[in-house]
């Protein structure tokens, strides 16, 4: 007998509204511990004071219910839909957009989406959301949310390496990109790195990489070693908190790799700001 499970899209909508509220106002413990660790390692007044303000910012946001950042972002939504799940209710994309519209209105978040990239008229609802939907085996339903600000998104980068290029060249490229971006993406960064796939897969993976449980390294030792090398390199680059100079340039480095063409080695970078607004749940 074929298994099946029914999920109503109202439940998906309610969960997404909750995730938007949570990520907009609450910095998770991992972020606060990371900020405290960076502050302890800084030797200049500007870097320490910058970290003090970022730490106090997380406290004020939670206590006063003021968004962590005025750029409350676009909603990037990742859905893993089990093949045996039957959805009931609205078209799922409509349910997601209706959650975004409701949450951005109800929680007084900024509406930062324009309907056309050249005409640039604000939709007034922060919709559409940017939705990545994957079909997975079984009956699971997983929802992950990333709120992404424009200043950090604008520093995104992609380079198509030669398959014969060395890992050291990739690390050099990553450091060079982060140093050139300097203050603009609001360091300390949470760097997502997509390696392999086609160009578009690599870019998406540079976001997916940051959905991993907070504070963990890659499960494959080869990639966790590479993450640590990149992390060390970035934190000796001198960019520092908000680019004012210092030791705290990266809070975490997360790689997501994918199979690639014999001719291709894409490396995509998501220079996520210190305000990492990511959360997920399973239904």
């Amino acid at each position: 007998m074929a298994m099946s499970r029914t999920i109503h899209t109202d439940l998906i909508k309610d969960k997404l509204v909750d995730l938007i509220r949570e990520t907009s106002f609450i910095a998770p413990p991992f972020i606060k511990e990371c900020f405290a660790r960076i502050r302890e390692n800084e030797s200049t007044d500007i870097a320490r004071e910058t970290m003090n303000i970022l730490i106090e910012n997380t406290e004020i946001a939670a206590a006063e219910q003021i968004p962590l950042c005025q750029d409350t972002g676009v909603a990037v939504v990742f859905i893993e839909l089990g093949q045996s799940v039957r959805l009931e209710g609205d078209y799922i994309y409509d349910a997601v957009n209706s959650a975004v519209e409701e949450a951005y209105r109800k929680f007084y978040l900024r509406k930062s989406v324009v309907s056309d990239p050249l005409e640039r008229k604000n939709t007034g609802t922060n919709t559409p959301a940017f939705i990545h939907l994957d079909i997975v085996p079984g009956e699971t339903f997983r929802l992950d949310l990333m709120l992404k600000g424009g200043g950090s998104e604008n520093m995104s980068a992609l380079r198509m390496f030669r398959p014969t290029d060395s890992v050291d060249m990739i690390i050099d490229y990553i450091e060079d990109t982060v140093v050139k971006a300097g203050p603009n993406p609001c360091p300390p960064l949470f760097l997502g790195v997509g390696i392999g796939g086609t160009a578009d897969t690599a870019m998406t993976n540079s976001k997916r990489a940051l959905l991993r449980p907070a504070g963990t390294w890659h499960s494959n030792p080869f990639y966790s070693d590479l993450e640590k090398r990149i992390y060390e390199r970035l934190n000796s680059s001198g960019v520092g908190p908000m680019g004012f100079g210092g030791a705290g340039t990266a809070g975490a480095v997360c790689i997501k790799e994918a199979p690639a063409h014999i001719a291709s080695l894409p490396v995509a970078l998501n220079l996520n700001c210190h305000s990492l607004r990511v959360a997920g749940c399973e239904l």
Binding site: Q65, I66, C69, Q70, T72, Y108, R110, G150, N184
Partner: peptide, 21 residues
């Protein structure tokens, strides 16, 4: 700056700087 809308009773919402370049 492009602030978030003020919640009722607030002077202004979140109001940090945007990228100057």
């Amino acid at each position: 700056v492009g602030p978030t809308p003020p919640a009722p009773g607030r002077i202004i919402g979140a109001a940090g700087p945007t990228t100057s370049s």
